[in-house]
Design a protein around this nucleic acid. Structure first.
Length: 154
DNA sequence: GCCAACGTTGGC
DNA sequence: GCCAACGTTGGC
């Protein structure tokens, strides 16, 4: 069992959107980064916990908790020429991109801002990609210690 | 809106 | 296989 952090732009699809979905569950499509893909495809299991992070917004930070609600499976939007994330090089017989379903768990009592987390970049969150400059990884692993520490800030 | 950081692409 | 050019991410 592993823990993860997922980034999402709230203007596109935020935690409120997830909570409003039928079953509070949504396929996490559109991941088009190989490092994120490998984590998603090879390591995610049903029940894994997710820190839900809002990026590219007024107050970037962790806003809630979700969970992995399906096994990894090929991302169908990669095969759809109409889809924003269509990838003509993804072959249905050998899919390049994968997704999992994500289910809402809860909102945090407050947003834990990135700026606050960065204060621990040389401490409890040492090595976490999120607090490293220029990081763009949209899915990253969270150690049990990091998970406990971050929620301790709530 | 700016721009630094980064991943990907493609020419050679 | 190198690396410049390009497009994207995402904080500020």
């Amino acid at each position: 069992m592993s823990d993860w952090l997922f980034k999402s732009e709230p203007e596109t699809f935020g935690l409120d959107d997830l909570a409003a979905r039928p079953g509070q569950t949504e396929p996490w499509d559109g991941v088009r980064n190989y490092q994120a893909r490998n984590l998603l495809r090879d390591q995610m299991r049903i029940g894994d916990r997710i820190l839900f992070y809002h990026s590219n917004c007024e107050l970037p930070g962790i806003v809630g908790i979700a969970e992995v609600a399906s096994a990894p499976r090929p991302d169908p939007t990669a095969f759809d020429p109409e889809a924003r994330y269509f990838d003509p090089k993804s072959d249905p017989d050998q899919p390049r991109w994968y997704l999992v379903d994500v289910r809402y768990t809860r909102h945090l009592k407050r947003t834990i801002p990135l700026a606050e987390l960065k204060a621990f970049a040389q401490g409890a969150l040492d090595g976490m990609p999120l607090v490293r400059k220029g990081n763009r990884l949209s899915i990253m692993p969270v150690s049990p210690e990091q998970w406990e520490f971050i929620l301790g800030l709530e």
